[in-house]
Design a protein around this nucleic acid. Sequence first.
DNA 1: TTAAACCCTGTACCATACTACAGAGTCAAG
DNA 2: CTTGACTCTGTAGTATGGTACAGGGTTTAA
Lengths: 141, 141
Amino acid sequence: MTGVTIGKIAKEAGVGIETVRFYERQGLLDPPPRTDSGYRLYPADTVAKIRFIRNAKLLGFSLKEIAELLTLHDAPNATKAEVKQRTQAKIREIETKIMELTRMKKILTDLAASCSGQGSIEGCPIMQAMEGQGSKRCHSC
Amino acid sequence: MTGVTIGKIAKEAGVGIETVRFYERQGLLDPPPRTDSGYRLYPADTVAKIRFIRNAKLLGFSLKEIAELLTLHDAPNATKAEVKQRTQAKIREIETKIMELTRMKKILTDLAASCSGQGSIEGCPIMQAMEGQGSKRCHSC
DNA sequence: TTAAACCCTGTACCATACTACAGAGTCAAG
DNA sequence: CTTGACTCTGTAGTATGGTACAGGGTTTAA
């Protein structure tokens, strides 16, 4: 089997041609063999790799992290522990983001509740909150 | 009063000089008057504006959105409703992000629980999940 | 007077994940 | 044999929020 051209790979994987080349530049996809005229000819499993990239992205992994996961994927001596450790690190990262967003949401919700939404902006409690010192002794810290 | 030079504004506000000029380019701070030699001379309330920017950022507003808030701030005929509406839109935006992150976290947590973390990467359930079709009929959608 | 400290503009760079060309060569069908 | 579809490289642009110069001019304090 000689391989598949980039256009067919992209179409099957549901991404743009430019994206496939971009993933190659970023080290997510191995540079494939070429025809005499320089056309890329991809092995059949490339579509699966692009799907892997998409799935990992949906789980919050960056392209750099996905490159590492793909390296593990192809390393015969990689371990489950390495994958699990990365998964747990990502969970902690997500938890940190959720906590930060929850903090923002609580403050905004309280402010919205304290604002009548009626009349001139003068004395708006939301604006007043943002005018404050942003003190180092912030009660939410 | 002639005004304050950029270095003092930056120091008092706790940001870099470049950041002050950047905020001016982005339309967050009005271009201040200049000395004959071209030095910026800021009005005294500029430090408060930069604090406003920092506080609004901590609540999740982008610089573009903060520029709008600052415009409202200086508009005599602005209303509380306009501020409250932006606040509620931001709350919804944050809720969407939290839901997306929570979705990721749940999947990752389930996957981590299903992985023994022992032995070769062969058969790792986390990797297998990422190899899947990423189907259109995903049960989490 | 001279050196340090300050300020100016303009541009380029960091990460992230692409997207969009221009200008050229190649391949397949009719 | 020509036309359209495909591919190539390389570069630049998108949004976000800055940071970091280079290569000047200015101000201030000793």
